[in-house]
Design a protein around this nucleic acid. Structure first.
Length: 260
DNA sequence: GCGACAG
DNA sequence: ATCTTGTCGC
């Protein structure tokens, strides 16, 4: 069981956090193409919050890149380390995400984050930050344009439009389903933009969002629910779980809402 | 100075 | 992110 604690020296103020970004930004590797889509493993990470109870839960779900079958998964629960501040999302999500990744029984391969990488006010969003800290290839797939602009991609799945910060292309709006709102892809670390888009398409055979994101989202929410219900007070109870995919019996359900 | 703003 | 019922569509 991995204990989830906020790292020593983790910034407490916005100014300190921005300074950390400025100090690490230079370590991002942008000249690697990254692993080819459909090969190796792809891992989705996501985080859910309970601000009331000061709880945060992260999940890492490893998929086989070819079949998209779940190979392994892990979760971690901890205390909220930073408030949500646009541009500083990484400081809120990374400690718990790192714990979940550490709890995995196998290497993650390419990591797909919710949010941005290079598409960031200081070119160091969540995906880039996580990549630099772990050394892993990472990409960011966000649901919103954030502060950036773009024209609408053409209607068919696979169409793209540059995501711009002024005239600089910081990412790409990518249509993953015909006629459905695009997702916003940016490079994190050790992956090229075209390859990041190709991976995103490979991960969206049936939905707008990547399977990695969908699986990780469902898992971290479940982990948060369970942590909140077991939240017997204000003590520790910070834990993480992991494992290969074992036989899962029927899941425990809270209470079906009243259906008129 | 006043908004806008990944999750 | 999170609060939330039903509803339209593939």
């Amino acid at each position: 069981m991995t204990s989830v604690r906020i790292p020593d020296g983790w910034p407490t103020t916005e100014g300190a956090a921005r300074a950390v970004q400025d100090g690490l930004r230079g370590r991002v590797v942008l000249d690697e193409l990254g692993p080819p889509p459909g090969t190796g493993r792809v891992t989705g990470v996501d985080v859910a919050y309970d601000d009331e109870r000061d709880l945060v839960a992260a999940a890492a779900v490893v998929l086989d890149g070819a079949s998209l079958e779940v190979v392994a998964e892990a979760t971690a629960v901890g205390r909220i380390s930073f408030p949500y501040v646009p541009g500083l999302l990484a400081f809120r999500e990374i400690p718990t995400v790192l714990a979940a990744l550490d709890a995995l029984p196998c290497p993650p391969g390419l990591v797909v984050c919710d949010g941005y990488g290079l598409a960031h006010p200081r070119r160091f969003g969540l995906a880039s930050h996580l990549g630099v800290l772990t050394g892993l290839p990472t990409i960011g797939v966000a649901k919103n344009p954030f502060t950036f602009t773009c024209t609408a991609p053409a209607t068919p799945r696979g169409s793209t439009a540059p995501l711009l910060d002024g005239t600089e292309e910081v990412g790409r709006a990518l249509r993953t389903r015909d006629s459905v709102k695009p997702v916003f892809v940016s490079v994190g670390h050790r992956v090229g933009l075209a390859n990041a888009c190709a991976h995103t398409l490979a991960l969206t055979p049936a939905h707008r969002l990547p399977e990695t994101t969908r699986r990780a989202d469902a898992l971290c929410r479940r982990a948060l629910r369970e942590a909140a219900s077991t939240d017997s007070g204000t003590d520790q109870g910070l834990s993480s779980g992991s494992g290969r995919i074992r036989d899962r019996g029927p899941r425990a359900r809270p209470d079906p809402p009243d259906r008129p």
